Amino acid sequence: MNQKKINILIINYEFPPLGGGGGVATYDLALEWVKTANVHVITSSFKGLPSYENVNGIHVHRVKILFRKSRDAATFISMFSYLPAGFIRALSLALKYKFDVINTHFVVPSGPLGYAISKLFGIPNVLSLHGGDIYDPSKKLSPHRNRFFKGVVRFLLNRADVIVAQSSNTRNNAIEYYGPKKEIQIIPLAFHPPVLPKTSRKKLGLNENDFICITVGRLIKRKSIDVLIRAIALVNKPAVKLLIMGDGPEREYLESLVSELSLRDRVQFLGFVADEQKFAYLSQSDLFVLTSMHEGFGIVFMEAMYCGLPIVATNHGGQVDFLTHGANALLINVGDTKGCAESIMKFYTDKKLYTHCSANNKKKITTFYAENVAVRYMNIFTTIVNTK
C-alpha cells in the first residue's frame, strides 16, 4: 500500500535565481523532497520571473515585493514587503493544500511569516537558520546588535517546533546572542553535484600559464573582497590572476580599487553568470579564495570542493566545520591581507600541499550530497507529522 505523500510548505524570501547560497541550498533540498512529497515554495518575485512556476516538480509561488533592485542583494524594504504579500499567498495555499509541515528559511526576514501561518493553521514549523540572518558583523542593524530585533528573533526561535542550524558556528551564535529554550540541531547545507561543462581556458579567454584564483559571491561588504584584491596586489607574481564572479552594491568601489592598485591586467570582474558558466570558470581555475568577515556556511565552498580546488578562507564562520587548515584549505584571520597573500603564494609554490588539499576536497564533498542531507530533514518532518 502506497504511503500518502506529505505536503511541505517552504517559506524563503529568496529562491533561485534570486539571492545567494541559502536559496540555492533550499532548492537542492526541495529537489530531493519532491521525490516523495508535495513541495510548495513561497518566495519573492523579480522582474521577468513568473508569479507561479513548476520547477522540476517544485511549485514555486512568487509574491510581489518593493524596491528590490538586483537579483543578488535584497533591500530592507524588499524584505519587509515580502511578509504581507507572502502572508496573503500563504493563506490561500494553506487552505487549499492542507500542509503537514512548514520549513521556514532565515529567521529574518522569513521567520514572522512562517510563525504566523504555523500558528493560524496549527502546522508544525521547522525553522532553518542560515547564519547571516542572526549574525552579520558587517551590518549595524544585524539582529545580534539590536535590542528590538534580538527580541523578535528570540521569540521566533522559541515558537518554532524544531530549530535547525547549518553549522556549529550558527548554532553557537544563536545560543550566545538569543538563548533559545529549545535544542538546536545541526544539518549542513545540501549540494547537488553539477555536470561540469566541457570547456577550456582558451574558450574562456584565460591564459594557460596563469595561476588563476577565483572568488564567487555577492559583492557586499560582508564578503570583504577588497581584502582579497589587496592581497593580489601583494603577490608579486604577474601570473597570479583573480576572477571575481558575482554582482552587488560594492562592485563600483571594488572596480575603483582595482584601478587604484594598477591591477586591471590581473583582476577580472565576471558579473552575474548562470550555473553552467560558473562551473566552467571554477573547473578551469587553480584556487578558490573567500575573505568574508563571516559565513554561516558557504555553499560556494562546496562548489569549489567539487571542482577539486584547494581553498583559502577566513577562520570565522560555519566553514570551519569542514575546512581544516593544512588538510583541504589554508585558513586566515578576518581582514588579514598579508596572510591571504602568503596563503595564495603557498599554494602557488607548494605543489605537494596543493595536490593534498585538492584530493581531500574531492573526497569530502560527497558527505554533503543532497540525498544524504535531505533525508535528515525528512526524518524530522515525518516524526512531527506522525506525532501531531
Score class of each variant (00 low, 15 high):
277 Q>K: 15
286 D>F: 01
256 S>A: 14
249 P>T: 07
271 G>V: 05
259 S>F: 02
283 S>N: 12
227 V>N: 08
258 V>A: 07
255 E>A: 11
278 K>R: 15
232 I>L: 14
276 E>R: 12
245 M>E: 13
274 A>S: 10
286 D>Y: 03
286 D>G: 02
237 K>D: 15
261 L>F: 04
242 L>I: 13
240 V>T: 14
287 L>H: 05
240 V>F: 07
227 V>S: 06
244 I>N: 12
256 S>Q: 10
235 V>T: 15
257 L>M: 06
281 Y>K: 05
266 R>A: 05
259 S>V: 04
273 V>S: 02
265 D>N: 14
281 Y>N: 04
268 Q>V: 10
260 E>S: 14
232 I>N: 07
240 V>Q: 08
281 Y>V: 11
278 K>T: 07
283 S>Q: 08
284 Q>R: 05
235 V>L: 12
227 V>D: 11
263 L>C: 01
268 Q>L: 13
259 S>P: 00
284 Q>F: 00
277 Q>F: 00
246 G>D: 06
242 L>W: 05
238 P>K: 08
250 E>I: 02
278 K>I: 08
270 L>E: 05
252 E>L: 04
247 D>Q: 11
233 A>H: 15
284 Q>I: 01
284 Q>L: 01
250 E>L: 04
234 L>I: 03
288 F>Q: 00
262 S>K: 14
274 A>G: 09
280 A>R: 08
261 L>C: 07
252 E>M: 01
237 K>A: 13
266 R>L: 03
286 D>C: 02
271 G>R: 01
278 K>H: 02
266 R>D: 04
250 E>G: 01
262 S>F: 11
240 V>S: 05
271 G>A: 01
266 R>Y: 05
264 R>H: 06
286 D>H: 12
268 Q>R: 14
263 L>Y: 02
237 K>S: 13
276 E>M: 03
277 Q>W: 00
239 A>S: 15
231 A>L: 06
272 F>T: 11
290 L>F: 00
242 L>P: 12
259 S>T: 10
257 L>K: 03
277 Q>D: 10
272 F>N: 11
259 S>E: 13
271 G>W: 05
269 F>H: 03
285 S>H: 00
266 R>S: 02
235 V>R: 10
274 A>C: 03
229 I>C: 07
232 I>Y: 12
275 D>H: 10
271 G>P: 03
281 Y>A: 09
240 V>P: 09
251 R>C: 09
258 V>P: 08
285 S>I: 02
281 Y>C: 09
241 K>H: 03
